[in-house]
Design a protein around this nucleic acid. Structure first.
Lengths: 234, 234
DNA sequence: GCATTGAATTATGCATTCATTATTCAAGTC
DNA sequence: GACTTGAATAATGAATGCATAATTCAATGC
């Protein structure tokens, strides 16, 4: 009998289709492919140096993720999302993050909670320095850490799928200093309830924290790439 | 200039890859392809009468939905899910359905709420007749109606994606008569809070309603197809 | 007798080719 | 002059073919 069970990451080579999927997703998220833009398979195959087969497989996957739309016999266009759609997504995201907070209170290790607290402590200095780029990536790290601390893979994946689709909007949201600081306050409060393992309260705080962002994101379509734009203060 | 905007469902022919995706998904959900089973591309291409190209695109999509796993150079196997995974999924689903209930209280039309109430009224007779098949499909219709009444497409899609993965478990859950009746009670309570447009309470009831199911689903792996098995009383 | 090795077979990954549908653009008509 | 028609072009959809990796199974050695 063969010994089975996926060997622990022995495979060095990544499948070409997966590679293409990831690169394309990145291009969309970074705004190198703009919403509404039509995808020319030929151009991309040349840029990636692969044939149409893996590219088309990638397009199918990204379409099922909602990042682009496939129109029969007319190719793919990058999904352009309305304000209404963004609000929908934020509403679902806020609920999922609330659940993550609640679960983290039960499932997280002490070390994980400590790490979240540590990251949160670093947040206010970035706000005070008005360093949006650093703040944004630190903020994202905190949210991800809480998600991971839920120890619920399904939740983590569902969240990631939706988070993709509003990443640019989050990045470009432009809060006032006052709102930004309140976001920092909220993060500190969340860190405290997490440490206290107060699930119900953590859920409420996290849901509320994220729902506020929904009103901060503005229509930006047909934009000129990411640029040095504003950054969400969530 | 060409008049554009997708013509309202003029296209009669569905793309082959989409067709294959749907049929394969159905086969998995119905248990015709059992968890852990390896997929032979050749066999399926012969059964469907298509080439490997659209089939492989379908596999990529279903893998991204979590219905099967693609192992590089070793093909696809139907995802076998552990009790733990099922619990994860139910936890997320319960939260999403709770949100759907909450949103429905704000967004639903009176007609939609009436329809939900009407469906709910038909539930108890099915329980009393112990007609599991009818009960199950009616129950599913109610849940879908509430989801749709949320008028949040993102929520509806996210929910559907996860619901796929526990459909069989839901179908096969075998509640006691007592638990089954309590599920009916809960549904009636939910219908009432919906009609009253009491969002917060609807959310609580729906989340609780679904979380109970999590403990009802049992490991069944390597099963012998769907069979006339038990049906969830949610 | 059992494990190990390696050739033959089979399946998957990707590229290429063929068929079909959309798009473009020029010619003709009203 | 604007609209319609249709041929030429280009793009997408699907099938086939080729290269490579995995599996099988028999032969050999211990």
């Amino acid at each position: 009998m063969a010994m089975n069970d996926t060997p622990p990451s022995v495979i060095g080579r990544t499948a070409l289709a997966v590679e293409v999927t990831d690169r394309l997703r990145q291009m969309i998220l970074e705004g190198r492919l703009k919403p509404g833009e039509k995808i020319r398979e030929k151009l991309l195959t040349e840029e990636f140096g692969v044939s149409r087969t893996p590219l088309r497989e990638a397009l199918k996957v990204l379409a099922s993720e909602g990042l682009l739309e496939l129109i029969p016999n007319r190719g793919a266009i990058i999904s352009r999302q309305s304000d209404a759609e963004r609000e929908e997504i934020f509403l679902v995201l806020s609920t999922l993050e609330g659940l993550a907070g609640e679960l983290a209170c039960e499932a997280a290790t002490d070390e994980e909670l400590q790490e979240i607290a540590r990251l949160t402590d670093a947040l206010r200095p970035q706000f005070e320095a008005r360093d949006r780029r650093s703040y944004f990536s630190l903020n994202q790290a905190i949210h991800n850490a809480i998600l991971n601390a839920s120890h619920n893979e399904t939740l983590i994946r569902s969240h990631a799928l939706l988070a993709y689709r509003v990443q640019r909007a989050r990045y470009q949201a432009n809060p006032t200093a006052h709102l930004w600081e309140r976001a920092v306050d909220e993060h500190e409060a969340i860190a405290r309830t997490l440490l206290a393992r107060d699930g119900a309260r953590t859920r409420l705080l996290m849901t509320a924290h994220l729902r506020k962002l929904s009103s901060l994101t503005a229509e930006e379509e047909a934009g000129r790439g990411p640029g040095p734009g504003a950054i969400a203060g969530e």
